[in-house]
Amino acid sequence: MNSDLDLFLWLIYPYICLTIFVFGHIWRYRYDKFGWTSRSSQMYERDILRWANPMFHFGILAVFLGHVMGLGVPQTWTAAVGISEGMYHFLAITIGVVAGICTIVGFVGLVYRRRFTKAVLGATSRMDKLMYLVLGLVIVLGLVNTGSQLVGDYNYRGGVSIWFRSIFYFSPKPDLMVAAPLSFQIHAILAIGLFALWPFTRLVHVFTAPLGYIFRPYILYRTRDAHEGSRSRRRGWDKVDTIPRRR
């Protein structure tokens, strides 16, 4: 390795993108809570959305879990609990292909309605379009990679996965990516690029998935004092709360 490009792509670029990802979200949450929404277009069009949207979302949730398994869990761990390499790959490929196809079909449906329903197209921003392009490419390449496991013999759990984890240990191993097949490389580059775009797109809605709903009481009350916008007060502008409240 060690051409400058390799060093940039597999070491510097991921850190830049992940930094943008983290600080971008913090920035967006602090300054654009009002813009933090899924921006549903169901009101405009529902017939395609009704099947395509759940298909895409449940598909991509499965894909996400697959990545947690494939990238996050070391091979030695799965081996330790008695999952053989062949078994793992069989599961990964079957589940991965089914989830990937669901995601892609759903994605195509969604993009179709976005392009050909006038009202939905009108509500599509330039950032949306860029995001759909990158997201689409990432998903297609991901499915290609999953499929390639049927013919190729590249063990990503011995390469890409270790590189991915090494980023978070802050002892990156860029050599592992240089050795990976091209389709894996492109998938990784685009996916990391998507993380940099993430905070500036509607994808932010992922991070406010309303899981707390299951545990909260149905009816919520708030006092008037508590809702000075939900913005927290700026530093240095704290109130002097000396008067005991009558209520």
């Binding site: 707390g212 709903y213 708030r222 006092t223 008037r224």
Partner: peptide
């Protein structure tokens, strides 16, 4: 409301 963004004012 899944998020809990809607509320009834106590007062």
């Amino acid at each position: 409301c899944p998020t809990g963004a809607i509320y009834k004012r106590e007062e």
